[in-house]
């Protein structure tokens, strides 16, 4: 079914050479699609937490595939096995491929050892989105949080990942912070590896 036309036919998708990832579509095309994703999910839930969870699930499946794709294409079938390595992989490589730029910042949480934060002044998915007042703290960045969780989980770093708006002084729009809280086992393993 797929691949009708003059393009060379491949019997299955794995025989097809991997694209270099340079192809682009217009930002509006993505924004329209993303807005449909959010709107559809809104019809399936009765509360904000549920909506965020569903967006995160959608993101998760993207993240799992992104990890596989990037390890295969950019890293010669290797993946990071250490905590800081995988975090900087998400912050730079993944971000650069998906959003065209390195994330604005990657910080370690000050209060908890197991928390890390990736912040972005203007997250691509939030670009054309404003949240109605009655939806409180809802952040469509949940989708991106899901992508991050998908990448981390598939690489063997289970974590809870959430997206939050953080007001910035002198700025009209708040920035989005992706909060990553690693599972206990990850930190134990890190400590053992030294």
């Amino acid at each position: 079914m797929i691949g009708v036309g003059k393009i060379k036919q491949y019997s299955n998708v794995l025989d097809k050479p991997l694209s270099k990832g340079k192809q682009e579509v217009s930002l509006s095309a993505f924004a329209f699609l993303f807005s449909e994703l959010v709107q559809y999910n809104q019809t399936q839930v009765d509360n904000i937490a549920e909506l965020e969870r569903r967006l995160e699930d959608a993101g998760y499946s993207v993240g799992a595939r992104v990890l596989e794709l990037l390890c295969h294409r950019d890293k010669g079938n290797r993946r990071e096995t250490r905590l800081l390595g995988i975090l900087s992989f998400v912050h730079s490589t993944v971000w650069k491929v998906l959003f065209g730029k390195v994330a604005d910042s990657l910080e370690k949480g000050t209060e908890h050892e197991d928390e890390y934060m990736i912040s972005e002044k203007e997250l691509l998915v939030n670009r054309f989105i404003s949240i109605p007042k009655d939806m409180g703290t809802f952040n469509c960045g949940a989708f991106v949080a899901g992508i991050v969780r998908g990448v981390l989980d598939s690489a063997g770093f289970p974590a809870v990942v959430t997206a939050h708006f953080v007001p910035v002084e002198g700025q009209l729009r708040p920035r989005t912070t992706i909060l990553i809280k690693f599972a206990e086992e990850v930190l134990r393993r890190e400590a053992r590896l030294g």
Binding site: E36, V62, L69
Partner: peptide, 15 residues
């Protein structure tokens, strides 16, 4: 303004 087509493709797949 443009975005990476893979983000678009994978997001559509997720939908």
């Amino acid at each position: 303004e443009r975005v990476n087509a893979e983000l678009f493709t994978l997001t559509y797949g997720a939908i």
